[in-house]
Design a protein around this nucleic acid. Structure first.
Length: 589
RNA sequence: GGGGGCGUAGCGAAGCUGGUUAUCGCGCCGGCCUGUCAAGCCGGAGAUCGCGGGUUCAAUCCCCGUCGCUCCCGCCA
C-alpha cells in the first residue's frame, strides 16, 4: 500500500516514486490539469492529475469528490517556480499521478470537514466520526494521546504501578448520584459504576503496592456543565509512607512535564500555595484565577456602626461587606456597565452590587450619601482609592458575597482584558476545613470521610469540629480546579472519631465502607494521594472552553449521545432477565 | 428543579410593524476552463421555517405547549 504519509514528502524526495493513501479534502478541476488535496492523519499533499502525463488517470479523476478515499502512485516533482504553497509543509512538491485507485466513495458530507468552524454542535455531534476528521479534533486527540504517554513515562520513571480497578463496583452513598448496573445473577441487586477508584486505591495501599496510578474512567450521574461530563477521566494516584509534600511534588512533576512536552512551556516549580481561608477572602473562590489581581477587600469592620440599611442588615445577620477596587477603569466602564452588574450577581443569589466612581469632581455613587464622612474616608483608605478607580461592593452572607464577588472578579477580568491567555497560573489550595455544614448545620465531609485532619488539629476534633483543617490539597490552574487529594486516615481510631462526628455509627460505617475499614485494620500504611481531572487539563492545554472538545465521543448536556442514540429503550425480554420493571413517566410527573 | 440563548434548503445566516413567488453566501448537480491551492466563469436543483395547537381574512413573524442543542444557578469535588 502506501510508501509515505500525506505529511511526509518534501524537496528531498523529488524524483522518487511514492504511493499515498488518504481522503480528498478538496479538488480543483481545471478541465485540463486537476489538483487534489489529499490528507491523512499526518498532513496534506497536493496530487496532480495531468492529461499529458497520464490521460486515463486524468479522465478517472474527473469523478473524484470531497472525502473520497483514494490511493495514488506517482512521481514526486518540484513545483514550478512561484507555485509553491508555503502554508503547507509539503508545499514545495507535487505528486504527479501515474496510477490511481478509488478505494471508497463518500456521500457529500453534511458539513465541511476541513473547515468545521461554526456548525451547530448538534450536527457535529450527530456526525462525530466526521467532525473527528477536522484538524481541530485531530489535534485534540493527538495531544490527549501524548498527554497519557507523558504521564505514564513520568510515573514509570518514579516506580509507580499502573493498576486497573473494577468498573462494576459497589454503590456507596457518599458523593454524587451513581450510575447503576443491574445484576442478572442477583435479582434486585445492582452494581454501581465508580465515581472514582477511591476505595480501591486505598485498599491497594494496604496491599503494599506503595505507588499506584491509573488513568481511570469515572462516572457521576449529575447535571452537566461546559467542563463536566457524566463520564470523565482522572489521573488517579496513591502513595504509601508519604506526607502531602511528596504527593504534591509528584503532581507538580507530572504537570510540569505535560506543559513542557505538549506546550513547550516552562512551569516554575514548586507551585505557589494559598490557604482555603485566604483564597475565599481574596478571590471569593476555592479555585482562584491568579492570572490577574482584582483582589477582594474585607470591609465589614468599617461599617459596624453604619446607618446604611443594606450593609447594616447584612452585618447584623452575621454577613459581611466586601468589595473590589477596579483600579483605573472608571473611564472604561459606563453607568450601564455598572448597573448591569446587579442582574449578573442575581444568578449567584446576590441582591445587588453597589459602586462608587472616583472622579475628578469627587466620588460619585447612588449610595455615597448613606455613608458618614469617617466611613467614606476609611473606605478610600482601605481601597487606596484614587481618581479614575471604580469601587464595587457586595453585602450579604459570607457565602453569597464570596460567590458574587468571586464571579464578578472573573467576569470583569475577562471584560476588561486582564487575562493573558498564554499564562498558566497554577496554585495549590490547602488547609481546607475538614468539615463543611450540611443543611441542618451538622458536620459533613468537605472532601470525603477518609480525609485526615492535619496532625496539630486531631486533638480538638470533638471540641470544635468546624475549626479543624484537613490534610487535603486542591490543585488549581487558571481558575479551574484540575485536581484534589488528601492524606488519608490510616488508623481505625481516628476514623471512628470522624465517623461519629459525621453521625455515622459503627453499623452504618460497616455497611457503607465495610471492606475498606476492615482492610485498614490489617496494617494500613500511612498513605495519601490525588486525582487530577485529565479532561480539564486537556481543555487548558488546548485552549478550549468545552470539555466535549477533548473527548472523542462526548455526551450532550442531557447526557445522551447524538451519534449512537444512547441511552435507548431496550427489549422487554432484557428487562425481564434483569428483574427490572420500567414504566413511562406519567404526564403529571 | 430554575433562569438565559439558539432552532429558516446539506451547512452558515437574513427575513422590518403579520401581507404577493421566503433572500444571500458556501456546498451540491451540469457545462466551460492546463498551475490551482477553501481556484475561476456560466447555468440548475434544493425549504413541512424543529414539532403540535391557538389567535387572525392571512403566521417564519403574535400566544400556549412541546422536543432538541447550548450557557449558568441548584446539584456535583
Amino acid at each position: 500500500m502506501r510508501t509515505h504519509t500525506c505529511g511526509a514528502l518534501g524537496e528531498g524526495d523529488v524524483g522518487k516514486t511514492a504511493v499515498l493513501n488518504g481522503w480528498v479534502a478538496n479538488y480543483r478541476d481545471h478541465g485540463g490539469v486537476t489538483f487534489i488535496d489529499l490528507y491523512d492523519r499526518w498532513g496534506m499533499t497536493q496530487v496532480v492529475f495531468d492529461p499529458e502525463h497520464s490521460g486515463a488517470m486524468h479522465r478517472a479523476a474527473h469523478g473524484i469528490r470531497s472525502q473520497y478515499v483514494i490511493a495514488v502512485k506517482g512521481e514526486v516533482r518540484m513545483r514550478p517556480e512561484g507555485m509553491e504553497n508555503p502554508s503547507l509543509p509539503t508545499g514545495m512538491i507535487d505528486l504527479y499521478v501515474a496510477d490511481y485507485e478509488l478505494l471508497n466513495v463518500s456521500k457529500t458530507p453534511p458539513f465541511d470537514v476541513q473547515h468545521a468552524g461554526s456548525i451547530h454542535e448538534e450536527t457535529r455531534l450527530k456526525y462525530r466520526y466526521l467532525d473527528l476528521r477536522s484538524p481541530r479534533l485531530q489535534e485534540a486527540m493527538k495531544m490527549r494521546s501524548s498527554a497519557m504517554h507523558v504521564i505514564r513515562n513520568v510515573l514509570w520513571q518514579r516506580d509507580f504501578l499502573e493498576i486497573e480497578t473494577p468498573i462494576l463496583g459497589r454503590s456507596t452513598p457518599e458523593g454524587a448520584r451513581d450510575y447503576l448496573v443491574p445484576s442478572r445473577v442477583h435479582p434486585g441487586k445492582f452494581f454501581a459504576l465508580p465515581q472514582s477508584p477511591q476505595l480501591y486505591k486505598q485498599s491497594l495501599m494496604v496491599s503494599g503496592m506503595e505507588r499506584y496510578f491509573q488513568i481511570a474512567r469515572c462516572f457521576r450521574d449529575e447535571d452537566l456543565r461546559a467542563d463536566r461530563q457524566p463520564e470523565f477521566t482522572q489521573l488517579d494516584m496513591e502513595l504509601s509512607f508519604v506526607s502531602r509534600e511528596e504527593v504534591m511534588e509528584v503532581t507538580e512533576r507530572v504537570l510540569a512535564e505535560l506543559f513542557q512536552t505538549l506546550k513547550d512551556v516552562e512551569v516554575a516549580l514548586p507551585f505557589p500555595r494559598i490557604t482555603y481561608r485566604e483564597t475565599m477572602l481574596k478571590y471569593g473562590s476555592d479555585a482562584p484565577d491568579l492570572r490577574f489581581a482584582l483582589e477582594i477587600q474585607e470591609l465589614s469592620d468599617l461599617f459596624t456602626k453604619t446607618s446604611f440599611g443594606v450593609f447594616k442588615t447584612a452585618l447584623r445577620s452575621g454577613g459581611v461587606v466586601r468589595g473590589i477596587n477596579l483600579k483605573g477603569f472608571s473611564s472604561v466602564l459606563s453607568r450601564k456597565d455598572l448597573d448591569d452588574l446587579t442582574p449578573f450577581v442575581k444568578s449567584f443569589r446576590g441582591k445587588g452590587v453597589a459602586w462608587i466612581r472616583m472622579t475628578e469632581q469627587g466620588p460619585q455613587s447612588p449610595i455615597i450619601k448613606f455613608f458618614s464622612e469617617e466611613e467614606a474616608d476609611l473606605l478610600y483608605e482601605r481601597f487606596k482609592a484614587e481618581e479614575g478607580d471604580v469601587l464595587i461592593f457586595a453585602a450579604d452572607s459570607e457565602k453569597i458575597v464570596c460567590q458574587c464577588l468571586g464571579a464578578l472578579r472573573v467576569h470583569l477580568a475577562g471584560k476588561l482584558g486582564l487575562i493573558d491567555p498564554s499564562q498558566f497560573a497554577f496554585t495549590w489550595v490547602t488547609e481546607f476545613p475538614l468539615f463543611g455544614r450540611d443543611d441542618q448545620n451538622r458536620p459533613a465531609p468537605m472532601h470525603h470521610p477518609f480525609t485526615a485532619p492535619v496532625e496539630e488539629d486531631v486533638e480538638r476534633l470533638e471540641e470544635d469540629p468546624f475549626s479543624i483543617s484537613s490534610d487535603a490539597y486542591d490543585i488549581v490552574l487558571n481558575g479551574s480546579e484540575i485536581g484534589g487529594g488528601s492524606i488519608r486516615i490510616h488508623d481505625e481510631r481516628t476514623q471512628q472519631r470522624v465517623f461519629s462526628l459525621l453521625g455515622i455509627d459503627e453499623e452504618q460505617a460497616r455497611d457503607k465502607f465495610g471492606f475498606l475499614l476492615e482492610a485498614l485494620a490489617y496494617g494500613a500504611p500511612p498513605h495519601g494521594g490525588i486525582a487530577l481531572g485529565l479532561d480539564r487539563i486537556m481543555m487548558i492545554l488546548l485552549g478550549t472552553s468545552s470539555i466535549r472538545d477533548v473527548i472523542a465521543f462526548p455526551k450532550t448536556q442531557r447526557a445522551s449521545c447524538l451519534m449512537t442514540g444512547a441511552p435507548n429503550m431496550v427489549d422487554q425480554q432484557q428487562l425481564d432477565e434483569l428483574y427490572i420493571e420500567s414504566f413511562p413517566l406519567d404526564e403529571d410527573d
